[in-house]
Structure formats: structure tokens, C-alpha cells
Design a protein around this nucleic acid. Structure first.
Lengths: 249, 249
DNA sequence: ATGCTGTCTTAATGCTGTCTTAATGCGAAT
DNA sequence: ATTCGCATTAAGACAGCATTAAGACAGCAT
């Protein structure tokens, strides 16, 4: 099948194309808000500016979503039903430095001070101007994360520096194509665990990217060949027949 | 000039004396505002919280003060008499990444977007709540300064002086156009890492500057030609197809 | 205003490298 | 034995890239 079989040329498809153009590494933002209307509004605005948008409707879910999805920024509504918003900030800051923009209906100085001192990077009162919010989001996201230098994934001879998009095997740089890198990145992020084919397909070809499983096999073969040529044991990418693949730690 | 030869007892000298008095280890903030009342108010509040305070009453002076005094944060009033505040931000950002909190009497979204996209880190409207402003200052200052240990970049034969906007290859000066310089600067600031096309496009053509990818290619070709003509290995600007570019360290 | 200079944009070309497609062979499960 | 899923390879299609040249444009000095 061709990737250009989709019948509709809607926003979703356009997004996929854009993601592909960016090596599927478009910055992701997590919106934590219990009001669906706000989430919808933000999703539309953010996607229009090239963000990948994730959503959570509660604090608990939001925190786990940060852990799982590793967003590049977080928009957090303080008025969540399940827990205090400032506590969410605090909990996140215990282990994560992702930029956090706090939203709130309250406009009091004390509230702002509380949130900012808990570790939030900016505070915007509702109702907000969308353009301003986007600009503020850009501002806090622009100032990258200082504390992340060097390879973030190391396992034997294989090391991956996600920030630099660089893969090394035994110290030697490896040139990977967009798709090969995306596949390896996903496997590495879930090292030891089985990554389903669907998961890989979505990572590379987007939500509509099922029935590209043959492509996946081809690229995996290339990936294995390149890795093993550089001294990486080819068998460390295991095939779980009918399920997916696993990178042995 | 010797620090203890000053003929005039002006603000700068006063500042030095204060630095000595504070042991000069406290974080410094530069307040750029033409209204003396505001400066006094801020000075009192900031000093009470342990900041070392520097002052400038105009944009020109403020910029040179940033260069000389290397403050850890800047509070900048947009409504300066001698130049447009947003321009001050822009000028500072050409070579410096110090956190900037912008103050303004104007509360319009456009103004905020302009200032933030120019490189400011936060925007507070006057009249402001002092506690909130201090909390915001802490928030932007907390998120340290990642990539600027000095305005110099050196890697092999290539050296860039961001302050002077000067590029040298093997000591010889290189004349670059605005766009060429902006591209090289961005690559250098992220040396070793892949800089996405979108990132470069935004750096040069602003936030809505997508769909200029062809221009980018043209200017990159010029840049590579100029660099290699001066003795810089052309391959040290790598292309990551479909993703972006990387300057090899 | 006018012309000059250097920069930016636009467009066209050929090319490189990546992705897709399809064909073949293998092995495990039915 | 047959079928299904997977690995591998090779070849062609295609997107994205590099490069060049020419025209538009802005900035600047006259």
C-alpha cells in the first residue's frame, strides 16, 4: 500500500505529513485540564502552530502522562478536581524539569507566588488570550533544559543521545535515516520491554500508519544491518512473532 | 581605566561599592527603567530579598551595562525614552541569554507576543504586584543559563564572537550576511546537536516563517561556500535529511 | 529623488539518498 | 505439507537537497 492512499486530506493527515517532515520529533505539549472545552481550544491552537498535543483530564493522569509521554512542555490548569494544582507542580518537580505553564481562574498574587515558587515557569489567568499564551509557551520552552548533556541512553556498546539525535556504537557515530532512528529510539525508550508493531508503526507513520508492516520489516532489516556492521549484536533486537520487537538491555 | 580612578561619582561607581559591600556573590539583577520611582521601589524590594541591584535609565546604557556588569537577570521597562524596548530585547538576545523580565504599562496581547517572541522570558504589566514580580523573577532565573559561558564560540578553526557579531576562520574575518550569520549562530549554539529546520526557520524568519525551507537551503549553500573558501571543512555542517542540520564540534 | 551596492528571494536544474515496492527464501506453527 | 509471518535483498520511484543564476528589493550615499 502507498502512504498516499488516505481518502481524506484532513487536518490529521496534514499533521502527519508535518510530523514526518520534522522527523516525527515535533515538540510535544501536554495539556492537563479537566474542562474539555479548554482542552479542545488549546489543542486546535497548538496543533496549528506545529505542536504535538497530549491531553490529561486530571492531576494523577497528568503526572503519569509526563512520565510516559515525555512532553517538551506542560500546560497545567490549577483547578483540577482530583488534586491541588500546585501539588501537581511540586510532584512533577521532584523528578522532572519540563517547562510548566500554569493556568488558573484565580488571579491573586499569593496564588501566583505559590505556583511559581513550587516550580512553575509561568502563570496565566483565565480567561486568557490565546496568542499571548502561545507566546509565553514559546518563551518558557525556548529556554531548553540545561541539565541534559551527553548520551541519555547507554546499553553496552550502544549509546544514544536523544538531544543530539546521535547514535553511537562502540563510540563510532552511526548514520541512521529518519525512520531507522525513530524505530531505534522507540525501542531504546522501552528497552527490555516488547514494543508492539502498532506502536512502532504509529511512532513512524502516525495514527493512520497501520498496514505499513512490511515497510517496518524492511527498515528493521536495514537498522539491524547497520548496527551489526558497527559491532552491535544483531540478536539484541529480538522478534516477538505476532507481537512486536524488543531491544535486549 | 582603573576602577578606583573615577572622576565622577555616578551610578556605576556606586554599584561597585555595593558589590563590595555584599561580598559580590549575591545574584545581580539589572533594572532598566527611566522612572526613578520604579527603580527605587524595585531596588528596595530586590535588595530585601538578597539581590544585588544594578540600574540603568535608558536602553543604550542598559545594553552596555549588561555587557559590563553581566547581571544574572534583567528587568526591563519597555517604555524607554531613548529606544524601543522590544529592540533592546532583540539587541541583547543577539549575543546574550540573560533572563529578561519585561515591564510595561501596555497590557495588549500583541505587545506581549512581540516582546516574548523577541526573546523576553516574562512580561508583567504595570501596575504590578511586587510579590508576583519577585516570584516571576525567581522563576525565570531559576531555570539557569544553559548555553552561554561567555559570548565566545570556538571549535577548530572556527570562532564566533557573538557580542561583536564576528566570525573568524583560522583567524581571518569572514563577512556573513544577516541570515547566514543567524543560521551559523544557531548551529553553533547547538553544536553537535541536530537543529531542526523549523528551529532554523523560526530563528531567521520569525514564528510564522515556515514554508521558507527553500530559502534556508540557498543560504546554507552560501554559508557553506563562504566557510569552505576560508578553510573550514564544508562537511562539518551535516545534513540530516528530513530533519535538519548539525554543526560537528 | 537617483543610482549604486549588496542582500534576499525566486525559480530551475541535476543529483543524492531515502523510501517504497516487490520478489524470494526461511522457519515455525497448524 | 501447507500456510503464515518474518528476514532479506535489490531495484525503481520519489522526495528532499545542493547549487546556480537571475531578478527583486532594500539600504545607503550621492
Amino acid at each position: 500500500m502507498s502512504r498516499w492512499a488516505p481518502v481524506v486530506w484532513d487536518g490529521r493527515v496534514k499533521l502527519i505529513v508535518e510530523e514526518l517532515a520534522m522527523g516525527s520529533s515535533a515538540p510535544a505539549v501536554l495539556v492537563i485540564d479537566d474542562e474539555m472545552q479548554i482542552r479542545r481550544l488549546l489543542r486546535a491552537a497548538l496543533q496549528a502552530r506545529g505542536w504535538r498535543v497530549m491531553e490529561a483530564d486530571g492531576g494523577q493522569l497528568g503526572i503519569s502522562e509526563v512520565a510516559l509521554g515525555r512532553p517538551d512542555a506542560v500546560i497545567l490548569d490549577l483547578g483540577l478536581p482530583d488534586m491541588d494544582g500546585v501539588d501537581v507542580v511540586r510532584r512533577l518537580r521532584e523528578w522532572n524539569r519540563v517547562p510548566i505553564l500554569v493556568l488558573s481562574v484565580r488571579d491573586s498574587a499569593e496564588e501566583k507566588v505559590r505556583a511559581l515558587d513550587a516550580g512553575a515557569d509561568d502563570y496565566v489567568s483565565k480567561p486568557f488570550n490565546t496568542e499571548e499564551l502561545l507566546a509565553r509557551l514559546r518563551a518558557i520552552q525556548r529556554r531548553g533544559d540545561p541539565g541534559s548533556d551527553g548520551p541519555e541512553f547507554v546499553s553496552g556498546v550502544l549509546q544514544i543521545d536523544f538531544a543530539a539525535r546521535e547514535v553511537r556504537v562502540g563510540g563510532r557515530r552511526l548514520g541512521l535515516t529518519r525512520i531507522e532512528y525513530a524505530v531505534l529510539k522507540t525501542l531504546a525508550r522501552n528497552a527490555g520491554k516488547v514494543v508492539t508493531q502498532r506502536q512502532l508503526l504509529r511512532e513512524v507513520w502516525g495514527p493512520q500508519g497501520d498496514d505499513c508492516s512490511n515497510h517496518l520489516r524492511v527498515h528493521l532489516a536495514h537498522l539491524r544491518t547497520k548496527l551489526s556492521a558497527a559491532g552491535f549484536d544483531r540478536n539484541r533486537i529480538q522478534t516477538e512473532t505476532g507481537v512486536g520487537y524488543r531491544l535486549i538491555e
